[in-house]
Design a protein around this nucleic acid. Structure first.
Ligand code: FES
Ligand code: FES
Lengths: 146, 146
DNA sequence: AATATTAAAGACAAAATTATCTTTAAATAT
DNA sequence: ATATTTAAAGATAATTTTGTCTTTAATATT
């Protein structure tokens, strides 16, 4: 469904939202270890998330690291996709036509449409905060390495 | 959602199902032109679809080409994904955890689960034939180049 | 049998994705 | 001020995906 890049972005952001605060920032080592992702690559991804958009915040130097503001925590998960430039997944034609439209629908359009709607609904309304809360409650996991 | 490879595989198969028969086979030129895909690359994909699985059939030589048997037309769309080795898309964790399970669910699992179920249902029950029929009726399109 | 037509097979190439490593800059603490 | 810690930025590399081109093999037509 998503690229590795976006998968890491989603996991990292949710993890940061759960563990960090303005006063307790997280290092790249801790993050990549927690979400089971390649460290340097994850650093690049977090750079994108702090720069392009302002989903994640960061400060350099001692006691520096990554964190997410209360305001950013209220963003929908879709904001992460947008920051990674992969928002279009939710709009694309499932058969790869140049555009998904009612005017020239592909053979799967009618059936796929309600599913797509739910996907957009899910990513558009569920907030980063809400997902993080579940981890805090220990009912969900952000990795499953053995 | 799917790779280019799988998108072309889906479009090509549906198109062949609509246009061809044992007595009227389609050449690679005609197919790639109809679905707006790179010719040689599509040839490779059709090779895979005829070999690995037996979704598509082919014969070489004059009046040769690709076609789909009546039996294969009754296969679910999922058979195309399987032949392309991309069936796992329908089972994967949306956040990229190594496995999607109830035991160690990711933060989106609970919400994504019903959507995934519908996706599996759609690809598992809708047949190649059914999709092709809609094109025949002229209500859907297999490309949308200008 | 020879020729033409078509897909199969194989070799190759370009582009995108995924990943690593090194250097630089910012912030803090001493 | 200096040294230390941390992310940012940049360069590079490995891998996968996407795409092309050439040669081979099968089938049909003449
Ligand atoms: S046109 Fe294909 S999903 Fe809408
Ligand atoms: S564990 Fe992530 S979708 Fe099931």
């Amino acid at each position: 469904m998503f690229s590795k890049t976006t998968e890491y972005a989603l996991r990292a952001t949710i993890f940061i939202a759960q563990k960090s605060s303005e006063t307790n920032k997280l290092g790249i080592e801790e993050i990549s270890n927690a979400i089971d992702s390649p460290k340097s690559f994850t650093a690049k991804i977090l750079q994108a998330l702090t720069k392009n958009n302002n989903v994640v915040s960061s400060v350099r130097g001692p006691n520096g690291g990554f964190f997410i503001t209360e305001k950013a925590k209220k963003l929908p998960v879709r904001a992460i996709l947008k920051a990674m430039g992969e928002e279009d997944v939710l709009d694309k034609c499932v058969l790869g036509l140049k555009q998904c439209s009612e005017m020239q629908p592909c053979p799967m359009h009618a059936q796929y449409k309600p599913i797509k709607k739910q996907l957009k609904e899910l990513f558009g309304t569920k907030t980063i905060q809400q997902l993080a809360a579940d981890i805090k409650d220990g009912v969900v996991f952000i990795n499953n390495k053995k």
